[in-house]
Design a protein around this nucleic acid. Structure first.
Lengths: 328, 328
DNA sequence: TTGAAAGCGCTAACAC
DNA sequence: GTGTTAGCGCTTTCAA
């Protein structure tokens, strides 16, 4: 820095001002300083900067490595953070690196706030973290006293069911997510939609889960009961929906001609030409923006009450859902 | 730190020793210090630590957010780095955040070495980076003067082709990756294997690419030519292979009964029950370990010549490849 | 715009 | 084991 100052023939303080983009230097001087820095390849030392600043302007983000949807979120978080003048610091969770490990790393960096993607830790641990640092939990309902930003699962399930209803279906089964996060909400949304359509009597729930195997098992149970089969199914998530479709097809049922299926998540596999699965997609851009907004908002105004932000999901119609044939 | 020292009734220096796990403190003292730290929730300030250390013991890692395989690598890198006493710092690339941006962040943190996953930047830029900081490029062949750790594509292609040959096939087509990274090597491996089997005359190449659409287009071209169709295909990657399979099936060809297909990458979609694609998998654990070993090795011994480490891939047999029926 | 001074919370080196 | 000193490379504050 000293060297840059010397070359640009200004003071060290001025170099600092230029690199922090603060007022107090003429455009001409800024150019001169930047040129001098470029000459010797100077780049401000981030470590020193962090240490000396009162606030780090760091948003620590914990994510689960390999999670497809969290990747989408990270993309949005990077953009939103930059727009707010904050920097994102990533800390990944793996089988051998716990969420607690990841959080500790970020805490020791003195991040101003923490954004936790799909945290699975105990509510009490979350609360402890939240007391120390402003914390936003994303994409998971948690009972701890922290800000939460997540998709409105009830609405999502209602949208999915409504889509099938609009296509003329009435014998619609819901293969649920068992005890998975969000499963209760999606059951509720399905039931609401059915009741709203005056089809309370046709509400039909099958216990499912997160995996293809879960979807397959539930489908086999349905098929074992025999006719009348439901003409449509709303399945907890895309993975399970694929198992469901596969089981129905193997049993000789034409999907979607004789049986429509809609999933949830808009995961990558649902987009493949192989599957072309209709589904409900989470709004990653909104979730990302909201998460950063909440974090930054709390930093600006400490006393805001913690609250949950619900982001509505959107219907994604592909090839696995069709109007009910006239003869059914 | 001062406060911890006071409570544990030791000097600040001792606290430092305990937290760095250096020799020079009795077990009893260590316990006392740790207890005192826990009492007040003390955790060493990472920023200060980084600033004062001569070496940061940081391995900066640039990865492309959303890339499935790079996620697998990150998991291994975290483990390998920890084992070597280094810390991993992640910096993600998105549509709006370039590799250069990601690298700059890591440089300003003064990472001891850089690990770049699948770098797509120009060789000259890579060279510039490599001159400043020890750098390892992973999973991509680059002509710059940096260390490279990548899968042995030639061997992988040979293994895939050999698998088909072992099943009795001889009319084996290779749908290649066009100008994609690795495509030339895989073509070479295929040709080697065919020649080694005395089938040079049956070598058949189709121009393909990275996507399902590419695989489909190549398949349609093959189908248009009419019989005799190849009885097996080795396709550049899993995605393209799925397009290939889909096109053949739609044309009434039974895969795998009448046409075996093997892909490359062992991507998540290949593992799905839907696809059950035989493929060639990159050895993520070895690649990750090798990358860290190279980086750390160079830090310990600056003068090591730069070199490329080739990691052999492995055959993954699933349901898309079958022995050649006797009547063919 | 400048210059000076203090400080961020550690590590490192050394004498004790 | 202790205590001291000297940084690490910035930001922050203040008076000029």
């Amino acid at each position: 820095m000293e060297e840059v100052a010397r070359r640009a023939d200004v003071s060290r303080a001025l170099v600092s001002i230029v690199f922090r983009e603060l007022p107090g230097a003429s455009a001409e001087t800024r150019d001169r300083v930047r040129a001098a820095a470029a000459e010797i390849g100077y780049r401000p030392d981030h470590r020193a900067r962090l240490l000396s600043r009162r606030e780090t302007r760091l948003l620590g983000t914990v994510f689960h490595i390999g999670d497809e949807f969290q990747s989408d979120l990270l993309v949005e978080l990077y953009a939103a953070a930059a727009a707010e003048g904050y920097e994102l610091v990533l800390s990944g969770v793996t089988a051998r690196r716990t969420e607690a490990d990841a959080v500790h790393e970020l805490q020791s960096l003195r991040c101003d706030a923490l954004i936790l993607l799909g945290p699975t830790m105990r509510a009490s641990d979350l609360r402890t973290i939240g007391r120390l640092t402003p914390t936003v939990a994303v994409a998971r309902a948690v009972a701890a006293d922290v800000d939460v930003v997540r998709t409105d699962d009830v609405t999502g399930a209602r949208i999915a069911t409504k889509h099938l209803l609009d296509l003329g279906h009435s014998r619609i089964v819901h293969v649920d997510g068992g005890r998975s996060p969000g499963a209760a909400e999606r059951r509720r949304g399905y039931q609401h939609a059915m009741r709203a359509a005056g089809l309370a009597g046709l509400i039909s729930l099958q216990t499912g889960g997160l995996t293809e195997a879960d979807g397959r098992a539930a489908a086999l149970r349905l098929l074992a009961v025999g006719a009348p089969l439901p003409t449509a199914a709303f399945v907890f998530n895309d993975q399970s929906a694929l198992g469901h479709v596969d089981a129905f097809r193997r049993a000789g049922v034409d999907v979607p001609a004789d049986h429509s299926v809609i999933g949830f998540d808009n995961s990558r596999i649902a987009r493949s030409v192989w599957t072309q699965l209709s589904t409900v997609g989470q709004d990653a851009p909104s979730l990302g923006r909201s998460a950063v907004d909440r974090a930054v908002g709390r930093l600006r105004q400490q006393s805001t009450p913690r609250r949950t932000t619900l982001v509505p999901p959107e219907l994604v119609v592909r090839q696995s859902t069709r109007p009910l044939p006239d003869n059914r």
